[in-house]
């Protein structure tokens, strides 16, 4: 990516604790201006926390966030209305749609074009200003409310737009409108987009990079599968964990038997027939989903084994040759030494 420009965000040793529990730890991360970054991970993995920190809504317990080369903190006038967050359940203020969208512009000291800006922002999310501007906040559907909330952010023409599950609870049409409006902002103003989502069409079709979050740790670049604990001893130098369907996960012995482990998606081998190959672990599962990663041309496949969902990344031809379709039985093979432990210290 545009490596010549300084990063819009640079994170150093960022930690956030809630009531003594560490919710997030990011040793070092950079985000290039104009990038589209997807945040992926189960609920409670720290996605929302990271977004609130990047949006300068919260103060981190420790660590620094540099915005365009300078450290910044909440209420920094340099940040306000340039970095904006669309939270998961957007809150509309008890006023009209127009006033909701105009709120941020007015805070900044409204220019003469504020009415046009509000109308442009509404149109961008597919809401006709003539029809919606004067509506009260309570006369909107869930999808419309979400789009009004996005319009309020777009009206600011932000440099960074952070979105927390923007399409999780809206219908397909609203989801498509939201996606298009966000991408238009990137194209028009070079807005950096950071999106937390479970939605594969975001993560694999739109994003330049997908970061995986698990238990407060960020794994930039590449998808992974996480194996939660607890683990038990399985002979010399190995630990194992029983899955709900009776199969066993094997991993090299770690330090904390309750800690989660992970394996990179590329290290998982998928085959229709069982592979018998020395010390490798072979598990039987079912193909759940497949999706094309538009950027790399590879295919993401998820496989259900017991209570786990494994995420593998395959070349399209492998998929074709092996003839894997959702619902097919499949064998997943991996080498125990490829399993790594999440450092929970």
């Amino acid at each position: 990516m545009s490596s010549g420009k300084p990063p819009i965000f640079r994170i150093e040793a960022l930690q956030q604790h809630y009531g003594g529990r560490r919710a997030l730890f990011v040793p070092h991360l950079e985000i290039a201006p104009g990038a589209i970054v997807g945040l992926m991970g189960p609920n409670g993995s720290g996605k929302s926390t990271l977004l609130r920190l990047l949006g300068f809504i919260e103060k981190p317990s420790s660590g620094l966030i540099h915005f365009k080369g300078r450290t910044a903190a909440p209420f920094d006038p340099r940040i306000r209305s340039r970095v904006t967050l669309l939270p998961q359940d957007p809150y509309l203020m008890n006023r009209s749609v127009f006033d909701n969208v105009a709120y941020g512009i007015k805070l900044r000291g409204a220019g003469s074009d504020s009415v046009q800006r509000v109308h442009r922002a509404l149109a961008a999310v597919g809401l006709a200003p003539a029809q919606f501007a004067r509506r009260p906040w309570f006369a909107l559907s869930g999808g419309e409310a979400q789009r009004v909330a996005l319009a309020a952010r777009l009206a600011l023409e932000p440099e960074v737009l952070l979105m927390d599950e923007p399409t999780a609870s809206v219908d397909a049409e609203s989801a498509e409108r939201i996606r298009r409006a966000a991408l238009a902002a990137r194209d028009q103003w070079g807005t950096t987009l950071i999106v937390a989502s479970h939605d594969w069409s975001w993560l694999f079709e739109v994003c330049d990079a997908v970061w995986h979050l698990y238990a407060g740790t960020v794994f930039p670049a590449g998808t992974r599968t996480f194996f939660p604990g607890p683990w038990e001893q399985a002979g010399e130098g190995a630990w194992r964990r029983r899955l709900a369907d009776g199969q066993w996960l094997i991993a090299p012995a770690g330090t904390d038997p309750s800690a989660p482990a992970y394996i990179e998606s590329q290290k998982l081998i998928l085959s229709r027939a069982p592979m018998v190959e020395g010390s490798r672990v072979v598990l039987k599962g079912t193909v759940l989903r497949q999706a094309l990663i538009r950027r790399t041309g590879k295919v993401v496949v998820t496989v259900g084994i017991g209570e786990l969902t494994l995420t593998a990344v395959l070349a399209p031809e492998t998929l074709r040759n092996e003839g894997m379709a959702p619902g097919d039985g499949i064998f997943v093979t991996y080498a125990p030494e490829d399993v790594s432990w999440i450092d929970s210290s």
Partner: peptide, 25 residues
Amino acid sequence: DRQLSITLRSLGADRRQLLLSTLWE
């Protein structure tokens, strides 16, 4: 709603505007 504070601040409210807008809400 806890989201109110996040919303106001993400739309660029400073401390005084946060107070006034919250009271207004």
